[in-house]
Design a protein around this nucleic acid. Structure first.
Lengths: 300, 300
DNA sequence: TGACGAGACTTAGATTATCTCAGTCTTGCG
DNA sequence: CGCAAGACTGAGATAATCTAAGTCTCGTCA
């Protein structure tokens, strides 16, 4: 007795993923960002899912969306499903012999902290392949396929290893440093900023007791810290430097610190590993190596 | 420090689903059938996933495929992920007020057993919406969105309710029955078969001690039991009838049973509910009602 | 009170992803 | 040796998904 009409099946998996993200973020815009698509795409996916289910999942408010009770009730299990799915994929990836150790890092950390250490890392772990991906926000290591993440964090989760506290202080080309005697002299200099850390100058100036007449937000802001650093090296102004990032330049004399005062920061360079145990055979060893390498500044 | 290149994300969810099905079935062809696509589509999805992961998931043998150890190791968690995903969707569907009770059934059960009971069911449960989907194989109720399934099964799981044992016996139009005195007379009659139950005549004839000269596989086979039944009602031959399906016709005299002997079958009509508890508020009551309605044959 | 901004919606059209189809290849089996 | 089963391939069709650009609604702020 055959007769097999295409059975009604699950809704589109992509629509479910969009819903999960939107529900977790409570925002279509944020979900779209997370998924790497436009908000309109999320709108359509959610609508499609609502049509399939025959129920409303979000209440559309003027300002954003709100989960319906039914959607809220189903969310935890749905999220756990995607967590488990991602975990399964990690299992599969783990089978890849000698695969690259995937590191996610803040762009400035990738360029200025990790990159200089790579030669020594390669020497310490012969044959190790490393892939580095720069991103602004720490990835969800339960979900995304990275073996290690390097970010500045104030509160490190238990699976993480936070390095020694970091400090900031003004740095500049030696020629500029020579004409700076006290913080008031900064009024005549160009202050260089990183776009994300725009407040660092204000914090340092306040903490150092500098005259309030200095505009802590004047001067150019760079979208990449490395660009701001290049500008400082070229003598274009005074940069608020992070010791962990500009230490080697200070030691080598390419940069000078006109003022002694260092402001210790609450966020520390942190090594994060996936919560479900190391996903790459050498993660633990590499983490330990990187942790101890933090004290011995790389040469050059 | 922006700069956000599209991050590497999870592999295609559809590819994962295809892999899960293929791995579970250990066959691309069966997986394709389950997913309702062609085998070529599965081939391509698996290849895409293998390329993404950088590992081989199946060993291609001349005759079919074999899971690699890595794939086999990851399968259980992956399957559970999809189970949980489906479960989440059920949660969402459950929020739909007054939604239809989705019943999956063997086509012959849907047409000949369930259909005649629907009027009384509607009367017993006013306002209840019912949707019926016919299919050859019981759906995986962990995965597919049905609230109730009706199939002939030998071993019912604990969540199921098996009805009284069923029996088969030859039935035909009364005019034909009058010229049949003993089983040997069947040699001169056309035997009607259901394509799926092609062996039922052989089992009954052997059990009834009929002459071995009768060819138990002669005569036309119908792809739908209801078609074979129509042929029998029209006097085209003798059908091996299931009591649960042709009972009303016997009672009404439209069909006659030329021989007394009934062979009790090992598979019984079984009501299956999803393992995670009733997904529809009235499932339990409907199951009970259907179970007790089995004894009271519907009229007409 | 009115301009603005945030956030979601809509539609058309473009872009991808996915599927089918038809033919091929290999191998086990009669 | 021919056939059947099961998987592969590549081209082309189809369907799913995304983007883009313009709307709409409401808060917020001047």
């Amino acid at each position: 007795m055959p007769l097999a009409p295409p059975r009604p099946r699950l809704p589109s998996l992509n629509a479910l993923r969009a819903f999960e993200a939107a529900a977790r973020c409570e925002s279509f815009t944020k979900a779209a960002e997370e998924l790497g698509v436009t908000a309109g795409a999320v709108t359509q996916q959610i609508r499609q899912l609502e049509a399939w289910l025959g129920i409303r999942l979000f209440d559309r408010l003027a300002q954003g969306v709100a989960l319906t009770p039914a959607a809220r009730a189903a969310l935890p299990r749905l999220s756990r499903s995607f967590d488990m799915l991602a975990h399964s994929v990690q299992d599969l990836r783990a089978a890849h012999e000698n695969r690259a150790l995937a590191i996610a890092a803040l762009p400035c950390i990738a360029q200025l902290w990790l990159s200089p250490r790579l030669p020594a890392l390669q020497q310490a772990f012969p044959g190790l392949l490393v892939s580095i991906t720069a991103m602004e926000q720490p990835p969800d290591l339960k979900r995304e396929p990275y073996d290690l993440a390097l970010f500045y964090l104030e509160d490190a989760p238990t699976t993480a290893q936070a390095l020694d506290p970091d400090a900031i202080l003004p740095v500049c080309a030696p020629a500029i440093a020579r004409r700076l005697e006290n913080t008031a002299d900064l009024a005549n200099e160009t202050l260089l900023h990183d776009a994300v850390w725009r407040d660092d100058w204000a914090r340092w100036l306040a903490s150092a007791g500098a005259p309030k007449t200095i505009d802590p937000h004047g001067g150019p802001a760079f979208s990449l810290y490395a660009l701001a650093l290049d500008a400082a090296l070229a003598g274009a102004g005074v940069l608020m430097g992070r010791m962990s990032l500009i230490g080697p330049h200070l030691e080598a004399g390419r940069l000078a610190a006109p003022f002694e005062y260092r402001l210790t920061m609450p966020d520390r360079l942190t090594l994060l590993a996936p919560p479900d145990g190391p996903s790459h055979p050498r993660v633990a060893a590499v983490m330990e190596w990187l942790g101890s390498s933090a004290n011995s500044q790389p040469s050059s």
